[in-house]
Computed example of a mutant assay.
Amino acid sequence: MNTKTNNKDYNLVKIYYYVCEKFEDNLQFRCQRFSNNNAPKLTDQEIITIYLFVMQHHGIFKMNKIHQFAREYLLDWFPDLGSYQAFNNRLNRISCAMDLFLETLLSEFAPKECAKNFSVLDSMPIITCSGKRQGKVAQEITAKGYCSTKSMYYYGMKLHDLGFCNAGRLPHSEQIIFTPACVNDLSLYKEAWSEIENRTFFGDKIYNDTGLFQNMKHNFNSEMLTTVKAVKGMADVLRKFDRACNDLYSRAVSKIRQPIEALFSWLIEKSDIQRASKVRSTKGLILHAYGRIAAAFITLIF
């Protein structure tokens, strides 16, 4: 048997073992069945394993292609695979467990060398359709927003990432939160992370809020360092006077922040998460968001 086949089989078994372990711990309580069909031949653990393995190991992201690959190459492992419609419905039904699975994955495999008192944070768009159209999918968790990086309006969600700094490597995500696209990054930070104690955060200028910074320093011994934001109405002579200092400071903060942008590029490459235009339901979008990120980070278990 060749090495490539061995690696594939090892990865499949390793993912299945981890999913079963976490399912027994807590995931099962998110997908309990209260019907006569509470013990299907193809288990929830097998469904999740197929979904994660095909994306992680083979880079296939479309649901019908995942099912097609499983039918052609994994039927010896999963003989009760069934139809594509049933496979898709089952995955959507257990989408509610994927956020807990991702949270567990990130917490259990955090690298020991991470600097737990230094964090970088940023956001990126998950696009269900362009801003020129009216978004009609998963309206309860999506909205219209603007992405300054891409200079575009869009409908969808935002992925907000808080990551531990890891010198010379990509930051490790401490927590990932999805919000409607209209939610401001600073508002999310105030609500979710501004009360973390003894932490130094590095963010973009959108997180700049002097009053908040003073409160964080006084009450939680934490601080946020951001690139310098221009002050409206400042005299030109004063702006030029401070330019050298501000530029040097902003470059230093940006250098520390740069790895989280590299992390987003890696996530897009590994999961194609930004493109959600094929999603047709709220459960499908939840599965898309948490499932694809989990598939990218599943490499941590190897």
Rank of each mutant, 00 (worst) to 15 (best):
S187R: 09
Y146K: 08
L212Q: 12
R243P: 00
S222N: 06
D204R: 00
H218W: 06
N215V: 14
Y153W: 10
V183I: 08
T179G: 03
H160M: 04
K190D: 09
A244T: 14
L159Y: 01
A230R: 15
S173N: 09
N208R: 05
D161W: 00
T142Q: 03
Y207F: 10
K144A: 10
M152W: 00
G145E: 10
K132N: 14
S130V: 03
Y189K: 01
N215C: 11
Q214D: 14
N246S: 13
L186N: 04
C165A: 12
E174P: 00
C182M: 03
H160E: 03
D209I: 06
E174D: 10
V183C: 08
A244F: 00
K205L: 14
A181G: 02
C129F: 01
L162D: 03
I206P: 02
S130M: 04
Y146A: 08
G135T: 02
L188M: 05
D185W: 00
G163R: 04
K136F: 06
I127M: 07
F213V: 14
A181H: 02
N215F: 07
K217T: 14
D185R: 06
C165P: 06
C129K: 02
M152G: 01
G233C: 12
A235L: 12
G145H: 06
C165N: 11
L162Q: 05
I176L: 08
Y153C: 08
K132V: 11
N184T: 12
E191W: 02
D161P: 00
T226L: 11
L225S: 07
H218N: 11
D209P: 08
K150T: 09
E195S: 15
L162Y: 05
C165L: 13
M157G: 03
S148L: 03
F164Q: 06
K132D: 12
C182Y: 00
Q139K: 11
M224C: 10
P180G: 04
D185F: 01
D236W: 05
A181C: 03
I126N: 04
G131S: 05
L170W: 01
K136T: 15
D236T: 12
